[in-house]
Amino acid sequence: MMASISKSEKAYIQASLLSSNPLRADGRGLHDYRTVSLETGVAPLANGSARVNFGKAVDEGGGGTEVLAATKLEIEDVKPGEGEEGGRIVCTVTCSPAAYPQLSSNALDELQYDYTTILHQTLSHPSLHPTDLGIIPYKKSWLLNVDLVVLSDAGNIYDALFMSARAALWDTKVPVTRAVQYVPPQSDGARGKTDTEDTMEVEGVGSSSLDTRHMPTASDFELSDYWDEGAPLSGREKWPVCVTLNIHSTAYFLDATLLEEASIPLKLLVVYTFTSPTSSSIQALRLVGPGELQLPQIEKLLQESEPFARQLHTALNTKLKDEDIRRNQKARDRFALRS
């Protein structure tokens, strides 16, 4: 975030960006990312989790931007007006004080709030809503909590947040449930002896059952015996990726380090979702920083950012599929050893 930087360092970075042969502090090109380390399934008690690190050398102990994301499903009542399925998504970002040692606790809260807002607004948008969050129509649904922790920040935090959220959501398994319904016995004579509660209710409403005919009758649910922790959350291809364009006058670059972030006036966050191999849609757009942009410039930047987001999306999908295979294999090996 607000790394202190001297004027000459700033000038050095800016001059390098604008030179005919741009070269960054660590020898990267303008559109190169640092190495991204990614791992899913890091939190055993979560329904889905992921850890992402931007820019840590393989054998190094620390360094880089590190974000931990986890999803947890909670059961809640469907409130009136939430439709048949219900189901909400709530994102929360927490920043570890160790990631921002220079910030006071108030400033840290504000920063967390900023991150939370952009993530929550984007991910809980109806267009991304998964279809399998309902448990019992009009009654119970899953509340999907997406919690992210920023463990360290070495620049490009938004891309890391979105990437880790996407990986955790990709990894999320929804427990398989089956609705349970009370079927009243046919004969009137048996009524009232076995299930007192239900008869009480019925008596309160009135003996006529015509009104309740179209009401969903399932009142409870059970977890069915399933071979895995659950079924993958639906629509996991849809979760968006974020590309941050760091803009300095006419030049822009991706994946800025802290010092680079401190020396540019403006960041443009573009969040894309890719529903099919050819089509894409922008889910969110945000300008961060004191700089200014003209509308034509934004249009041009949006056009140019799409290929970057697509590459990011493709690479991330490949990695996530690799992770799925790795974890499944690991489980198989573990069981093979035991038997």
């Binding site: 000459s8 050095y12 001059a15 005919s20 070269l23 960054r24 660590d26 020898g27 190094e60």
Partner: peptide, 28 residues
Amino acid sequence: SNRNDAIDDATRSAIARVSNIIRTLATY
């Protein structure tokens, strides 16, 4: 002064290379 001298591309890449070498050696 806060103003940098003019730095040509060759020097820039040499600076970046030396920085990367130092980072790598520090990693190991």
